[in-house]
């Protein structure tokens, strides 16, 4: 792809769905999050910290926006005309959406973030040079930068606590970008086990850390290619199509009954996470 070709046919490139000509054959990992079930308890976030060796940065750095919550609970308040809302919080767990046409991938100057064959948006730490372009271009703000060398100079995991680090996940050093991986270390193990038995990964065989701990089961995760997978069925019933940037159901009359939507779909990012809208009292 030469640069002149890219510039001349820019709109074509943006219109094109990235996996149109290369459909996912074996796996397409996807998630759906039921906002009606989400109670905003933050268990998913805590599980993610434990699973993925995320540093706890402390109040001061958190205020500077240096926190590392790969999955964070965003709060939205219905303030109903009051100056400060005191009730009616709505929660939205926000994580890397693993976009099929990820804005972060196109801007990385060193190719540290790529799309994998399984439809994941990969981040390779040892290739990352810390330009932070990806962070700037991510509409979901789901990427986190290591401003400090947390394991050494900041000593986030002092002596006995370094034993809790997950050996399957790199402990990131200073100057690299990181983000939700859909617990790729678990996916790799599940895929390898399935391969040894000559089958593909069964639905429910692999869970992400956030899904595993969610007390209300709001998060489901699975292989969208598998017709029996719960996630695929959810996407189907909600009539959300991975490969469309505008869902057909949205213009239809009965759309109000369907709760599925993807965030900032109109930016043509083709995210892999579907949210199920919260049911409001008025709509019941």
């Amino acid at each position: 792809m030469s640069i002149t070709n890219l510039l001349e046919n820019w709109s074509d490139f943006r219109q094109q769905h990235p996996s149109d000509d290369r459909p996912h054959r074996e796996y397409k990992w996807a998630m759906s999050i039921d906002l009606d079930a989400c109670t905003g308890c933050n268990a998913c976030s805590v599980a993610c910290y434990a699973e993925n060796n995320l540093p706890v940065v402390g109040k001061e750095k958190f205020l500077h926006g240096h926190s590392h919550h790969w999955i964070r609970i965003e709060r939205y308040w219905a303030n109903d005309g009051r100056e400060f809302a005191d009730q009616g919080a709505q929660f939205l767990p926000m994580l890397c959406q693993h976009c099929e046409s990820a804005p972060c991938e196109t801007v990385c100057p060193v190719g540290a973030t790529n799309h994998t064959a399984d439809g994941l948006n990969s981040q390779v730490y040892n290739r990352c040079v810390g330009s932070r372009y990806c962070n700037a271009n991510c509409p979901y703000k789901a990427r986190y930068f290591n401003w400090y060398d947390y394991p050494t100079t900041d000593n986030v995991w002092p002596e006995p606590m370094n034993q809790q680090l997950n050996p399957d996940v790199t402990v990131r050093g200073k100057g690299v970008m990181e983000k939700c991986t859909f617990c790729v270390q678990r996916l790799t193990v599940a895929k390898s086990n399935a391969r040894s038995e000559g089958r593909s990964v069964l639905d429910g065989e692999v869970q992400t850390a956030c899904q595993q701990v969610c007390p209300t089961g709001a998060i489901s995760f699975g292989n969208l290619v598998d017709p029996l997978a719960k996630v695929g069925k959810q996407w189907m019933t909600q009539q959300v199509d991975l490969n469309k940037d505008k869902q057909a159901k949205d213009v239809a009359e009965e759309a109000a009954k369907l709760r599925g939507y993807r965030i900032l779909e109109e930016l043509r990012t083709y995210p892999s996470v579907m949210y199920l809208e919260q049911l409001r009292e008025g709509s019941i």
Partner: peptide, 10 residues
């Protein structure tokens, strides 16, 4: 062999 970054990099 696979040539995906995440096959080998973690």
């Amino acid at each position: 062999g696979p040539n995906d970054c995440w096959q080998c990099h973690k």
